[in-house]
Write a protein that binds this DNA or RNA. Sequence first.
DNA 1: CTGAAAGCGCTAACAT
DNA 2: ATGTTAGCGCTTTCAG
Lengths: 357, 357
Amino acid sequence: MTLARIAGELGVSAMTVSNAYNRPDRLSGALRERIFETADRLGYNGPDPVGRSLRRQRTDVVGVLYSNPLSYAFDDPAAVSFLRGLSSVTEGADLGLLLVPAASGASGGRDPRAAAQAAVDGFVVYSMSDEEPLLTAALGRGLPTVVVDQPARQGVPFVGVDDEGAASEAAGHLLELGHEGFGVVSFALSPDGREGIADPGRQEGAAFQVSRSRLRGYRSAVEAAGLPWSGVSVFECPGSAATLGHRAAGALLSSKRRPTAILSTSDQLALGVLAAAEELGLSVPEDLSVVGFDDVSPGAVPPLTTVRQDHEEKGSLAGRMLVSLLRGEDVPEPRRLPTRLVVRGSTAPPRWPVPAS
Amino acid sequence: MTLARIAGELGVSAMTVSNAYNRPDRLSGALRERIFETADRLGYNGPDPVGRSLRRQRTDVVGVLYSNPLSYAFDDPAAVSFLRGLSSVTEGADLGLLLVPAASGASGGRDPRAAAQAAVDGFVVYSMSDEEPLLTAALGRGLPTVVVDQPARQGVPFVGVDDEGAASEAAGHLLELGHEGFGVVSFALSPDGREGIADPGRQEGAAFQVSRSRLRGYRSAVEAAGLPWSGVSVFECPGSAATLGHRAAGALLSSKRRPTAILSTSDQLALGVLAAAEELGLSVPEDLSVVGFDDVSPGAVPPLTTVRQDHEEKGSLAGRMLVSLLRGEDVPEPRRLPTRLVVRGSTAPPRWPVPAS
DNA sequence: CTGAAAGCGCTAACAT
DNA sequence: ATGTTAGCGCTTTCAG
């Protein structure tokens, strides 16, 4: 069933039928009624969305690009909150939200063709590595695009937080408590799946801007306190599952110079650290202080000291930016939302105050 | 930039350029290379998805229809798990997942036009009331459609659980413990936003199949034990937020004949019941037993006795059904996934065993 | 291995 | 208030 068939049936032009659906004011109410009746009778459901999109050159759909298999997004509380914020804005603007399927290749990167094949008016890109081909492909489409979290790029609308500042504040908190022996559990520095201690070269060369910034933040605080960064082991995990944090902490805590505090670049990893500590008979915060990042683990025991960020607001802001771009408004300035260090029960002074050096 | 422009530039036909992208075997490798080079140079990103969809009469996108504002889905742990399962299947089949925006009208119903305007090859409909216009509209499109949870309809592919049986088992557990005074906290029976005690007429006339079935299950177990259903107050909440369960339990627990056990049609509501009990100085399970439904509240205190269902598998099965429909395979039989009563710490025998009547 | 013709279903722009 | 024309960008079908 098509517009034309309905038109033929009634002896009117296709245009008139189109108008019945799109421009009620451009035809008489009576005719409009007759058209709807006929449509109903013949089982016509209104203008075909694809034909309409082709003609109008818009789809009224926003594409979401995710750096991992889509289903992981629904495992990550931060991503879920983000999507909540984003979807409430897009739905408010009557835009669909298309979760773009990008099968992961052997190298772990996501298939860049996915971006080319998505029938959308714009993209929201969630947390990708600097050179992710999928991101390049999306940007190549020339559609309005907002990048969230990473990578921040000149001229590309962006929403994120001040990762470096927030990380520095987190480390500063531990320093103030008197800690001097630190370990860091970080999620991926690069998408190559490496797991283990990352030397400063790898830290600085990280392909994930957020990882790089948080490490820099930790480092600047540590060095500002007069402690050498070389004394801090950074354990890189190839993802952010709690089990990875568990392994990482296992390694850090069984090293010769066991840290009295562990900084973790995500709450999920921190949860793993907590588990590892318990397994080793270390109590938190007495024997070990732990700081997370994100504040998405309300149920942690003990309650996690962490950096709070508003993931929902991030999604909502990204959505508002994209909507304004779709309306043809000016390219919005990059935005960094505030974070806040939330001190809870997982941090305390080290058990034996270390003598000042 | 279009196919034709690239073709013109190289002096080949549009068809050949199309083949370069879609049928590599149908042209020489050398020509293919030249085409890609030119495309690159001119900033052509491959065939336009909309033009292609119009011609091929498929979009490679699956639409998700939700009975509430989309953003609510990301608040509901059951829906999130469901989407995880669904997205992993659709992504595996290289299909996009479109969250269809259906602005809610004044009556609370969702705009049925949304279904007509979605450029998709099929729908997954998540948990709707019997006569939801949005569902009718979707079915009217004549596209492959799988309904999840409700409403089960003749001839429409369906995935759900045996709500009645599961509810009956939940009530049976309490009866075995010796309870005789029950209250029920239910989510909506109809989409009219009513809050308060629902009489048996309203219970049987409920527009939500799942609510109806669960109530029937509770009822059959209670009556099988020789107790009158008229003695059981059913409090209907206009949603399933914990605060609603809180209010409902407040009402039930302050009635003259305070129940010793509360059956709740969702975990979220049960969480509210727990909160209300605490507020009233009743301890669970000593003074009050509470049973949930869904098993999505791992952090509850005390741990919730509940009916477990595998939401992720539900999504994955719905996805597999839809994919098989899209492949033109036969309409799959309706499926009811198993549930399991998980007894935890929120249920116990009533404090003072009630004398047998 | 390459191409010509046709048309998927719709609506903007311009008549009348 | 209604109609005509044209074409959005692509790929199926059929021919070479």
